[in-house]
Amino acid sequence: MLTAFAILTDGLVYAAYLFVVAIGLSLIFGVMKILNVTHGSFYAFGAYGAAIAVGAYFNADYAAAGGFLLMGVVAIVVGLVLGLLIERGLLRVVYGRDEVVVVLVTYSAFLILEDVLRLLWGTESYALYQPLAIGGNVMVGGLVLSGYDIGLVVFAIVLAFAASYALRHTRYGRLLTVVIFDRELAAAFGINVSVMYTVTFVLGAILGALGGAVMAPKIAVTLGIGVEVIVLAFAVVIIGGLGSIEGALIGALIVGTCRAAAVHLVPQLELFVIYAVMALVLVFRPYGLFTRAQPRKI
C-alpha cells in the first residue's frame, strides 16, 4: 500500500517535470514539424543557468520568493537567446527540406552546444540545494513529501491549463491552431507563418529551459544531462502523440508512473520499461495515442 502510494507520488512528480520539458518539444513539432534535438541543450542551459544564478541569489540571502522567480527569468533569457539563435540562424536555412535532414541539423546544433556548456562551465557538477531546503517537507499518510515536489506538480498542472487555454482563447493560440492545421492555408489567409515559427520556437525553447531550471534543484547539474533528457522527452511525446498538449500530458504521466513503478519494484528495468512502453504504444497506435493517422490521397 505504501509502495503503491510512493509509486503514485513519485510518478506524479517525475511526470510533472517531464511534462514541462516535453510540452515545448511537442509545441515545436506541432507547429513546425521539426523534431528538435536541440531541446536537450535548452534543458541543459536552463539547468546550468538556474544552478549558477539562483544559487548565487540564495547565497546572497535575498528573499526566497525572488529565487523562484529568478528560475523563470533564467529560462526566458536562455530560451530567447538560444531559441532566436537556432531558429533565425540555422533552421531558417533548412525549412522545406526532409524532416530527417532537419532533425540532423538540430542534432548538429545540439552537439556544438554540448561542448559550449563544457567550455563555459567546465566538467564539474553544480548543485542547487536551497530551493528544496526552503520548500521543506510534508508528511502525508506516512510518507515524507518534499514541498518543492508538490509545488512542481501544481506548477505543471497550471501550465497544462494555461497552455490549453491560451491555444483556444488567445489570438496567438487561434492563429497557431490554423498553422498547425494547414500551413499553406494559414499563409493564404495572410498569417505571417515566418513570425509564428520564430515565436513558437522561442516559446518552446523557453519551456525547455524552464524544465531544466525547475529540475536543477533535484539533480546534479553536470555534463550529459541534456543527452539523457532528450531521449526521455522523445519517449513522452512519441507515446502521447507529437504536437498535442493532451498527448504530452498523458505521455508524461505514463512514462513517469512506469519509471516510478520500475524504480520501486524492479530497479533493473528502469530504462527498459520506458522504451518498452514506447515501442508497445507505437505497435498499436503508430502515431502515438493522441494523433490520428492522415490518410494518403491519390
Binding site: L35, V100, V103, V231, F234, A235, I238, L271, F272, I274, Y275, A276, M278, A279, L282, P286, Y287
Partner: peptide
C-alpha cells in the same frame, strides 16, 4: 517515426 522507434529499440 522510423528514426525514433529504432532509437527506442536500442535504448531498450
Amino acid at each position: 517515426f522510423f528514426a525514433m522507434l529504432s532509437l527506442a529499440m536500442s535504448m531498450i
